[in-house]
Write a protein that binds this DNA or RNA. Sequence first.
DNA 1: CTCATATGAGACATCAATGTCTCATATGGA
DNA 2: TCCATATGAGACATTGATGTCTCATATGAG
Lengths: 199, 199
Amino acid sequence: MPTREQLLDAALRTLNDDPTASLAQIAEAAGVGRATLHRHVASRDDLVRELGDRSLDRWEETQRASGLAEAVADGGDEAVRACLREMFPRLVADAEDYGFALTDSFLVSEPRLAARTADLEAGEVALWRAAQAAGVVRGDVPARWCMHAAYGLLVASRDALRAGDVARRDLADLVLTTLLTGIAGEPTSTTTTPKGGAR
Amino acid sequence: MPTREQLLDAALRTLNDDPTASLAQIAEAAGVGRATLHRHVASRDDLVRELGDRSLDRWEETQRASGLAEAVADGGDEAVRACLREMFPRLVADAEDYGFALTDSFLVSEPRLAARTADLEAGEVALWRAAQAAGVVRGDVPARWCMHAAYGLLVASRDALRAGDVARRDLADLVLTTLLTGIAGEPTSTTTTPKGGAR
DNA sequence: CTCATATGAGACATCAATGTCTCATATGGA
DNA sequence: TCCATATGAGACATTGATGTCTCATATGAG
């Protein structure tokens, strides 16, 4: 007798694994009859909509818990860096848990979800602008490119994790380091807390 | 009276725009009857398979034209850098033209396409290993992470282009610079040809 | 124990996409 | 002109997913 939350969790896991899974597969994975599934969600679109909302809730919570708004308001380089350090481990986890939402096309065709997405993207862009103003990020790249690049590396992190190419505990650092300093030279330690105090 | 190639091109454009487009939509976009479409491809799976093969052909050609194998065999840092400079503009164009292949799940479920993909990925990984050996890329990141990161930034480039956030002519440089030196510090000019001779 | 409620199994109709088929027409060459 | 071939339009059956419904059963509260 799974609760509604457990049922949605099972659906999420199934859709992460195979975004084209049928409702029958989802119900089976949840250990529940197909009719029972329909007693909780009216239709497949309803289900996907709800999971999409949960994924955006999660993203919103990540922005909140990372102090994104405060970092933008503060504007200091250390505040921005601290926000990034807080945010990326969460984003990487979000990308793993809600992987299907990273690419599902239904989510962008749903106006309300698209609008929420745009709002949250605007928050990210604001952070990148602040990062540029604080000198944490170069000023000669479009702030929206920073957002797209971060998103792309989250897709990469999900794929790397699935392929078993990177250990989970290394992933968040790897993503943020790659984004900020690339894979070429030495990392200029923006992601790990400075040991000596090289602030 | 579109030729087979033109028809597949139209199908590709349509599927890039909407990966869930029906055969009726594809036929309409090609300016052709649904029956005529079926005279060229036996089934939807056939069509997607063929487009998947074309996308892999394109990737293969990109590796060849960029001299990937030669760069790996050479192993020198300048050879590797030259290969990267050749390859990324092509990859960015490939990602734009075959965008749907970047994420379509059917392509990985098709064993032959999955095998070809694995082969081509192995080529990329070989290049990243060579880049590490030549000191072009840090040695402390998994070579396969370099591959995933490159892929993720190609997804980002496609999205940025669609959203109109980056000019097409800037995109390849932006992707390669971001991958190699990140968005934080000054770019250490691995992507643009050195002016003075600062090899 | 008794009853109300939720569930599982499955029947059922619906729907959209798909693949096949036919036929009238157009096109292009002999 | 005459003929062969390719096409467009559309009818048709099939298929798989979907959404609704019923009924027997289990479970839990009273």
